[in-house]
Computed example of a mutant assay.
Amino acid sequence: MSRREFGEKKRGARRVQPLKTILIVCEGSKTEKIYFERFKERDSGVKIEVPTNKFTDPVNLVKFARDYAKKHDISVAEGDSIWVVFDVDQNRDEEITKAKALADDLDIIITPSNPSFELWYLLHYEPSTAHLTNEQLGKKLKKCIPHYAKNICVFDEIAPTQKLAIKRAGDLNAHHTGKNLYSRSSNPSTQVFRVVVHIDKIKTENRANARARR
């Protein structure tokens, strides 16, 4: 019996709304996993899963997400969502294009960061449209967060400017109009904001539904 069927049969004939699951598959680095784990909240009506894996290339990340979702009864058709987060800097355009095509076929959303995930952090402090190497990005971020280092949690520090970062990320997409956002040519850009917007949207909807049922 699936968790959907179980939810409907639980407590006799009463229908129990199952939790929506947001599956976020990140590349091997711990930075992204640490960040997204912080979005978990009790009684939010949403289950966030950020499984550990050994992959760094986008194609294998998409395949891992597909297999993990199947094994754990995570279904887009049932209202769940599946996201793959990865850095562009170490990948060729051909690999990204292949991953995007496979993900589209599977209803999986890929969210690359160009050059890397740390750009999402930087956008909480300042806009940036000039081409960035990871070294340049690291220096900029270090000025904003002097104690910053890989694999430390800065969620609470950057949370107050999350909406501003979302706007800046969207502005970067507009800045690259005419370019392929899923390629190396869109430096700097990050689609991580799409995951964050979705998480906040689902949580807001669940809270509103909970209030309406009272």
Rank of each mutant, 00 (worst) to 15 (best):
T21C: 13
I202V: 15
V76D: 09
F117T: 15
R211N: 13
L122V: 14
R3M: 07
Y182D: 06
Q17I: 12
K20L: 11
V192T: 08
E126R: 07
S186K: 08
I48M: 04
D107G: 01
T111G: 00
E157G: 03
D87K: 06
T111Q: 03
R184C: 00
A13F: 05
K201H: 15
S75D: 15
H72P: 12
C26S: 13
N180F: 05
K100Y: 07
I74H: 06
R214Y: 07
T161R: 04
A174L: 15
R11C: 11
K201E: 15
L181H: 04
E37C: 06
G178W: 08
N91I: 01
D156H: 00
K150W: 06
E49M: 14
Y68I: 07
C26N: 10
H176I: 09
E5V: 11
Q162D: 03
G138N: 13
S186M: 05
F55G: 08
R211S: 14
A130N: 14
V85G: 01
L19S: 00
A210P: 05
N114A: 09
H175N: 01
T129C: 09
A169C: 12
R38T: 08
A149G: 11
P115I: 05
R207L: 10
L23T: 09
K47N: 01
I48E: 01
R15V: 03
K100Q: 13
T97A: 15
V25N: 06
A169D: 13
K71E: 13
P188F: 01
L19R: 04
L19P: 00
I108F: 10
P58Y: 11
L123W: 05
A174M: 15
R194A: 04
D89T: 06
A103T: 11
N206C: 02
C153R: 02
G28T: 15
D87W: 08
A169F: 05
F64S: 03
E94T: 13
T31C: 05
A101P: 00
I34K: 02
R214H: 10
E49Y: 09
I82M: 01
K167T: 14
A65Q: 04
D43Y: 12
N151E: 15
K54H: 00
W120L: 00
Q191R: 04
L122N: 11
V195Q: 00
K143T: 04
A212V: 14
S75F: 15
I24L: 04
Q191Y: 00
V195C: 05
L164V: 13
S183T: 07
S183F: 02
D57P: 03
I74P: 03
V59G: 14
K63W: 03
A77N: 13
L172W: 01
E8W: 13
L19A: 01
K98F: 07
L119C: 09
D43F: 11
Y125V: 04
A210F: 09
D200Y: 10
K100V: 13
I166H: 02
G12A: 09
K54G: 08
K140C: 07
T204L: 15
T177A: 11
E32K: 03
D67A: 07
E157K: 06
A69W: 07
E27D: 10
N53V: 03
P160S: 12
K140F: 09
V46Q: 03
